[in-house]
């Protein structure tokens, strides 16, 4: 197997209130079949051997499904391939290359330490409206609610969002419209989501604004980096749903 020697410039920051900066390290002997996170694991071992503090970064499943991994790699959230950072392999890089590794940057995503950012604003947006109310008790027959195939497909596509926040990091405005668009479209498209549709849309957009995300100005950088291929049409659907909801709220 081929091995790589790399220079990495990593954002180091002690805690949320400390000033951070880029620090250069040599990552030696990295197998090209290692994932990007495994490269950081190897680098961390090398650092710890020297008695230096390990680089903090987020990760969990390492299978591309949980949305926990982040990192802006050479300026692109999740780096050069159309996947999550945990599914990015070192064969995408050249021997001797310098790689910039920085956090997912936005005002609404404050840095906690090194490469870890606080993405709990997403959870709060979800709590504001990203749910349906269902009665408890025995589940009804699965076929009792008919769902047109196009609606099922559209909802499924939007539901693929893993909430990683790459869209916010890629957006020059730090806007969360792709995430909120996906979460709202997912439920707004299904029959089960109809009773709370307007309320959901208003609550999620208002929470999004309150959390300090920017405004979408249709740059579409979000769509280009999304590891779950969420299409920007969820944003136009959100734009439509929000105004419908706002108007109907005002005439109630």
């Amino acid at each position: 197997m081929k091995h790589l020697n790399l220079k990495v410039k990593v954002w180091r920051q002690k805690n949320a209130s400390a000033e951070g900066g880029l620090v250069e390290y040599e990552a030696r002997n990295i197998p090209e079949d290692a994932s990007f996170l495994e490269m950081l694991d190897i680098l961390n071992e090398q650092l710890q051997e020297k008695g230096e503090p390990a680089i903090a970064f987020d990760h969990d499943c390492r299978e591309g499904i949980c949305g926990m991994c982040s990192l802006s790699i050479n300026g692109i959230p999740h780096g050069p391939s159309a996947t999550t950072t945990c599914q990015l392999y070192m064969r995408h890089f050249k021997d001797g290359e310098t790689i910039f590794i920085e956090p997912f940057r936005a005002r609404a995503f404050p840095v906690l330490r090194d490469l870890m950012v606080d993405r709990s604003a997403f959870d709060r947006i979800q709590q504001a409206g990203g749910y349906i109310t269902a009665r408890t008790g025995s589940a009804q027959d699965a076929n009792a609610i008919l769902i047109p195939k196009p609606a099922a497909d559209k909802a499924m596509e939007a539901a693929a969002c893993i909430g990683c926040g790459a869209c916010v990091a890629a957006c020059p405005n730090g806007s969360a419209m792709l995430f909120v668009g996906a979460k709202a479209t997912h439920l707004n498209t299904l029959p089960q989501g109809q009773p709370e549709r307007n309320q959901r849309t208003l609550a999620m957009v208002r929470k999004m604004d309150a959390e300090g995300f920017g405004n979408c100005s249709n740059h579409y950088e979000c769509e280009a980096v999304c590891p779950a291929n969420i299409p920007l049409t969820v944003i136009s659907q959100l734009n439509r749903d929000f105004v419908k909801a706002a108007v109907s709220e005002s005439v109630q």
């Binding site: 410039k9 954002w11 880029l22 802006s72 050479n74 300026g75 692109i76 910039f100 920085e102 956090p103 940057r105 936005a106 005002r107 609404a108 890629a170 957006c171 020059p172 405005n173 730090g174 806007s175 300090g212 995300f213 920017g214 405004n215 100005s217 740059h219 579409y220 950088e221 769509e223 280009a224 980096v225």
Partner: peptide, 18 residues
């Protein structure tokens, strides 16, 4: 102006994919 504030701090390396 709001957008600028929402991205007050920028990464050193920035790339555009679109």
């Amino acid at each position: 102006a709001e957008n600028k504030a929402a991205k007050a701090r920028q990464n050193e390396r920035r790339a555009s994919t679109a």
